[in-house]
Design a protein around this nucleic acid. Structure first.
Lengths: 229, 229
DNA sequence: AACTATTAGTTGCATTATTCAACTAAGTTG
DNA sequence: CAACTTAGTTGAATAATGCAACTAATAGTT
């Protein structure tokens, strides 16, 4: 009856040089051994509590990472996507600061700019496109991008992250008003950015209760993207 | 290896007396035979092209309905949700006009107001809550609610549908501006609502190319709901 | 036929939100 | 200590939204 192949995959994204990158790994199992692909694998019904648990395990085992943000993206399924047969992959996406990947990278994680991704097995290309679209859409009206920053960051840094994801400059006053409204950051008392030849910026961190949670507005940051979907 | 139970479920919603209702069916298989639950069933790897196809089949077979809008909601999974063992359900949601359900209802579809839903098996309660939240969130900045109207409708009717879903009155002028901006409706030349003792309203329909597609704005209809999620 | 009641649809203004440009602040470097 | 550079703020210009009052069109009532 159930000849369905049940897997999970994780789209692990980070910002490097102001460009969104996705983490890829060389596959160690057939099919497509040695080919770069999304980290993923079978769901372990014995060990995993649910698919989120499976995604966390995969991230831990294959990339040595515990992600501060992990959310279900969608499930991709069908007869055609895997040569082994009818398969189904529950896909999660994660956002982490670049240095977390660099620090954890005892394994061979390849960071690929999302514009350069090509030649992936299965429907991984389509999965990544879906994930990138989701991140962009969600960033316009939520605090999602903070997960691409480290523990501490300045507002100009955070603005740069938003701009990198949304792909267009944001008005400084508008940005700060939105961040204020989201009410998710707290200034770190007396902590300032150092080493730059100009006025130092205040350091902020995410308010504890927003770990793994997003703060939302009902107005997008930026009026451009009227999309049909 | 794969002892995972793979199913799909559909949250079929409609508006009846200005209240969101969800369609439930008495289960004809164990477990929970005879208990009201979401329409769903096993994925048929032999027949179904993918999970969307399985959802469409289920809707057709169990409720006699072809939905004008069907979208993947999320996948619910885990050891605990089904007494038979580790299971996974890819859930879709559908919106249909009330009369479509009424017309198709040779089968025993029970329409339950979403506030009254209780005592459902598995995690169906949680699934429905997720679906309702999704519909509400999405309705604030998209054309989603048109799928709850019939083929033809007036702007006041459509406004009533938005208000029923969002749960608060909308300013008439703002509403019409938004609809204009979404650019998804076309007036039916010379067709007017009849039979009412007042000025008749213009009839509209969805522009053909928006079938199964949404039109989005970047500004929500209504400034209330600042939600944490 | 005129009048009443009721809802459709529009118009102009008041209010609020967003953007822009110019300003002040506070460091490092030479 | 003057020059430079970026942080952060302020106020005015512009745009979006909401409100209230208007006109329009129908059925029912006198």
């Amino acid at each position: 009856m159930s000849s369905i192949i049940c897997t999970i995959d994780v789209v692990l994204m980070t910002l490097k040089n102001s460009v969104l990158h996705v983490a890829l790994l060389k596959r160690d199992h057939a099919p497509f051994v040695g080919v770069l692909a999304l980290p993923g694998g079978y769901i372990h019904a014995e060990d995993d509590v649910d698919t989120r648990d499976a995604a966390e395990r995969t991230l831990r085992e294959k990339a040595g990472i515990v992600s501060p943000y992990l959310e279900q993206l969608a499930t991709f399924s069908g007869r055609a996507r895997d040569p082994r047969g009818w398969s189904l992959s529950v896909v999660y996406y994660a956002l982490v600061p670049n240095d977390v990947i660099a620090a954890a990278s005892h394994l061979e994680v390849v960071l690929m700019p999302i514009d350069k991704v090509r030649g992936l097995p299965f429907d991984h290309q389509k999965i990544i496109e879906t994930a990138v679209r989701r991140v962009r859409d969600k960033s316009a009206y939520s605090s999602l991008p903070v997960y691409l920053c480290g523990e501490l960051f300045t507002l100009p840094q955070l603005q740069g992250v938003y701009e990198a994801i949304l792909g267009e400059p944001i008005n400084k006053v508008s940005f700060r008003r939105k961040i204020e409204e989201l009410d998710m950051l707290e200034a770190v008392e007396g902590a300032m950015e150092t080493g730059k030849a100009h006025r130092p910026a205040q350091l902020y961190r995410l308010k504890p209760r927003y770990s793994q949670h997003l703060s939302l507005t009902d107005r997008a940051l930026n009026a451009k993207s009227l999309t049909s979907h």
